[in-house]
Structure formats: C-alpha cells, structure tokens
Design a protein around this nucleic acid. Structure first.
Lengths: 225, 225
DNA sequence: AGGGAAATTATAAGATCGTATAGCAATGAA
DNA sequence: TTCATTGCTATACGATCTTATAATTTCCCT
C-alpha cells in the first residue's frame, strides 16, 4: 500500500550502475524507428484489448520499453494513437491499391479487384475492425483524430471515385454525381465490413462481393443517373 | 497517498445518523425503475466522454447515487452497459418503426418514410453514433454484448427485409435473395450514418436520402435479380 | 579515445478505477 | 405504530492509470 522506498532512488541507481557490465541494457534507436515500433505496439495492444489496450503501460510493455519513452517521443498518449492511426490507414489503402495495380488494366477488372481485396483478410478481419472502432471512438471526441480521419477518408473516397469514373467512361453510362456515388459505394463497403466483423455468421464474404457487384450493376443500369 | 482513516467507519456512520433529522436522505425506488435510471445515466456518460464515460463512478454520479448501487443492481458494470445497449437499441428501432407506421400504407411510402427517419436526428446524430461506437467496441470483445448485438441486428435486418419484400411484391420486380438485399441496404444505411457522423461535411443528409433512393432504384431495375 | 547530445530507464506522485463489505434507513405490511 | 425487508450509502482496498522529473547509458562525432 505504502510506496516501498521513497528516498532510495540514488542508491538503487548506483546498484544498477555497478551491476551492468557485460552488454548494453537497451538499444538506442533513431526516433523515426522507435516511433514506428511504438505505433505498431499500440496497434497490437488495441487488437488484443480494444479500448482498454490504449494505455501507456501496456503499449510500453508490448514494445519492450519503459513508459517514459512514450512521453519522450510523443508527449501524450493521444499523439501516439493518432500516429498509429495514420500508419494503419496508410497501410490499408496501400494494400488495396496494390491489388488494383496488379489487376488487368481495364476499369472493370480494376474495380473488381478493389472489391475482392476489400473482402479479403486485408480488411475483412475482426482484428482490423477492432482497431478501427477504437479510432472512430476517438475521432468523435478528439480534433486531432478527427483531422486525420477527414484526410484519410478523403483519400479513400477519391480512390473509389476514380475507379467508378473510369468504369463509367469506359462503358459509356452516366452518373449524376460521381462524388456522391463514391460516397455511397464507400458506405456500402464499410457497412458490410462492419456487419460481418460484428457477426461473421450474418453473411459470407463471397456474398458481400456479390452485393457490391450488384451495386455496380445498379450504377450501370442508370439508377444513379 | 495513505488511506485517510481506516478504522473510522462506525464513528462516521454514527455522526451521520444523528445529523440526519429532517428529510429523507435518499429515495427508495423499485428495482425496475432504478435499473432504467442507471442505464440512461450510462448512456449520457457515454455520450459525454465516449469510452472513458464507461465507469462506475461517473455513471453513479450522473445518476446521483453512490457507486455501490450499480453493484447492487447489476453486479458488474458490463452488465449495466449491456442493459443500456438493449434500452437504446430498442428505443431506436421503435422510433424508426413509428415513422413507418405513420406513413401512408403503401410499400413505397413506408420504405421512403423509413429512409427519411434514418436520416433524421433520431439516428443522424453524432451523439447517437458515439454511443454506438462504444457498443461496437465492446461487442468485439464481449460475448455478452455480442449476443445482444446479434439479436438486435437480426431484428433490424428483418424489418428492412420486410419493407423491401413488400415493395418488390407491390411493384412486381424480383430479387434473387431478399435477405442479402436487406443486408446490403442495412450496410448502406449504417455506412452513410458512420461517414456523416464522423465528418458531417462530407455530404448532406438530404444527399444521403437520395443515395438510398438510388439504391432502391437499382433494385427496381433488376440489379439484384 | 573521450566528450556530449539525447535516447532511455527509473522512480515518484496523485487520480481514478472496479469491487467487496458492513451498516444505515426508507418503505410497505402487520 | 412497529417491524422486517432490502434498497441504498459509506468506506476501504488494491490495481492501474497518466504525467513529471531526475538519473543513467548509449552511441555518434571530433
């Protein structure tokens, strides 16, 4: 209950000092590298414990460092979480784009590849949603997180919009407002992602792909003209 | 740091006893009522502070009672949160259904009324999403919450499916799998809800309504046949 | 090889959290 | 009006949390 030794700081330090002989007691790393390690440790903690995983102590332990290091590199923990958000967001969008670029270079194949990648374990993974849900919760209460979200959502929508616009141009159908159509398609993807992760029994990923193709078919048939 | 007075419990109690003369120091309520009060206090706390609002102390303070009362009525706090989830979920679905029942009794008007209600402040409200996001986070890590979610999502989907099925029957178009179509439409609604609440500048509620009508138009044109 | 910058650890202080326990007191029934 | 039920308060305890500060150690640079 009572703090063990209040005035013994220097003594303990001395003891440690003499005890340390052989090898280095910690690695000194470039701030860039350490920040990334901490960001990734934060993500692992959030995967494991959800909101409860957002804690200086847990993240430091996961990264194998002491708590003070997080303060040193990020100031306050929210900054670390925002950084982790940026890391993850960039990684996911990049993985999706990679799938698109590897597809045959027709608008149809590219969009289809985007859809399939969206329903692959890259995104369709309860752990990934678990991280995302924590981020959403913070976005609603933190201007810093909100700013990140705005930017990342914007990039994501722009990507989707490009895919849709190319398809429309290629197949010769018209869309009244491509921006809005992209928002709807993005919402459909996110909604299916959410529903499946919360309850994987509700439908199969393959059915989700079909539903997205149906949406595109609606677009083709002029439902958004 | 050190506990103030460890053995002074009885003394303090005695002092209070004599001090209390005039009026009742607390209201004694039926368990049913008190449980609901606590559930609603929990929701207010979550609205105000997000995940951080889920705390015995904060909720008790919000409800104007002592912490022990939560233990008394719910055992552990997770049970209270699950109860709050059920309250809120039932309230929202009921509000949506009320809008549907007040519409002209044609399938088309009923579905349209459902859509409009979905984009009204009943649901389209950052506070409401804030609560929901917290629940989603818990659903992913708690079997108890997951069970509630499964049931409530199922009810919600069934409602949507009924509306869609009636429309298809009335207008004479066909749908390959009504259950899947309902899942897609539900996902679209949730996705738009999420996107707008996270960033209300991304589109206007009225545009959301239009996007839903477009989806229905795709259904009508056989994109899901 | 050694000095110094800064990365890292170690430690402390104060808040808050969840739950358990014991006793008080409001209320309906006798 | 008294009594018993049980809703409710009061309090304690141990764990964990964030942040701040000071000492220490690594490693680059000259």
């Amino acid at each position: 209950m009572m703090p063990a030794g209040s005035q013994t700081g220097e003594v303990a330090s001395l003891a440690r000092q003499t005890a340390a002989k052989g090898r280095a007691r910690f690695r000194r790393e470039a701030p860039e590298d350490r920040r990334r390690q901490l960001g990734e440790a934060a993500l692992r903690c959030i995967v494991k414990h959800g909101n409860a995983g957002v804690s200086v102590r847990q993240i430091a332990a996961e990264a194998g460092v002491t708590q003070g290091l997080i303060t040193h590199h990020f100031g306050e923990i929210n900054e670390l979480v925002a950084y982790a958000f940026d890391i993850m967001s960039a990684g996911l969008l990049q993985a999706l784009m990679k799938a698109v670029e590897e597809a045959e270079p027709t608008p149809r194949k590219r969009l289809d590849s985007f859809i399939e990648a969206s329903f692959s374990p890259i995104l369709f993974d309860r752990d990934v949603l678990g991280v995302w849900v924590v981020f959403w919760g913070l976005v609603l209460h933190s201007p810093r997180m909100s700013a990140s979200q705005r930017e990342e959502y914007s990039d994501y929508c722009a990507t989707v919009e490009g895919l849709i616009r190319d398809l429309a141009a290629d197949e010769g159908f018209s869309i009244a407002d491509t921006r809005l159509a992209a928002i709807a398609f993005t919402a459909l993807l996110d909604g299916l992602w959410l529903a499946w992760c919360l309850n994987p029994a509700s439908f199969k990923p393959q059915e989700g792909i079909q539903l997205c193709r149906n949406w595109v078919e609606g677009l083709r048939r002029g439902a958004y003209a």
